[in-house]
Amino acid sequence: MDSPWKKWFPTLMVFAIFLSPLLLISPKTYITLTISGLAMGMLLFLVASGFSLIFGLLSVLNLAHGALFTWGAYIGFTSFGLINQWTGWGGSESIFLNITIFLLALLTAGLLVALLGVITERLVIRPVYGSHLFQIFITVGAMIVLEELVRIVWGPNDEVMPVPISFMGSYDLFDVVVSKYPLIAIAMGLIIYFVILMILRKTKLGTIVRAGVENPEMVQVMGHNIYRYFTGVFAVGSALAAIGGGMWATFVKSIHPAMGGEVIIFALIVAIIGGLGSITGSVVGALLVGLSYNYVAYLVPKAALGITMLLLVVILSIRPTGLFSEGT
C-alpha cells in the first residue's frame, strides 16, 4: 500500500535534518549541539509517548498530561530531597549512589503520578468516554485542577532542582565538550523506548493494547475488559510523563508550576508529527523536534520555536496522519 519512497521517507528526513547544519556549524559545536538535541528529544519522547499512546488507545486528547508532567517533576524534587536528607547519596562522590538516588526519585515520581493518573482517568475521564467535545473540556478542567494543586501544595514559586554531583560537569573528548547529564538522559530514553517497544511487540498484553488502538470494541468482544487496559495505559502514560518531568527538571535545574503547560505544546507537536498512537513515531518526532530546535537555537535563537512549527506544518502537509501509523 505504501511505495518504498514513502516507507523510507521518515528515516531520510531524520538524516537530512540531522546532517544539514554541518554546512553552517563547526563539527565540534555540531557534536555538542547534537548531543543536547538528542537529550532534549529523548525527554520530549517520554512526555509525548504517553500522550500519544493514550490518544491511540483511548481516543482521549489528554490535555492534563502536562500537569502530570509537572507533578512528576515536583514529586521527583521532593523525594530526591527527602532521600538525600536521609542518606546523603545525592551529594556523594560515588556515581553509583548518585544514579541510585536519581532512579529512586524518578521511581517514586512515576509510581505516585501513575496513581494520580489512574484516579484522574477513573473519576474524571471515564464518564465521558466517546464524547470528544466533553473529553477535551474535562481534561482542560483536570489540567487546571492538577496544576493549581501543585501551587497549593508546593507554593507558586520556582524551586531549584537538585542534581546529583556526578551528573554535573562535562567530559572533554578530543576537544569536544560533552555534558554528562544529556548522555544519561539519552541512555534512559533509549532504554525506556526499547522496553515499551518490546512490551508492545512481544507480550500478549502489548498485542491486546495494539489491537485496542485499532478497534477497542472488537477487543471487548474477544473477552478482554478494555477499560482495564485503558486504565493501565493511562497509568503507564502518566508514569512516563512523570519520569519525563523529573528528568526534564534535572536537565534545566529548576521547576515551576507552569512547566507542564510549556512542555505539553512540544509533546503535542511531537505526537502529531510522529503519528498519534505510535511509539516509534514519538521517538522519531521527538528527535526531529529536539535536534532541529537545538541547531536553530544556536544559529538563529529567536527562530527556534518557529522551526518546530514549520516542521509541524510541513509534515502535516505531506503526511496528514504523521510519519508513522498507529500501533507501531
Binding site: A211, N215, E217
Partner: peptide, 9 residues
Amino acid sequence: EDRGIFNLL
C-alpha cells in the same frame, strides 16, 4: 459485519 480484523497485527 465489518469483520473486526486487527489489520495492523
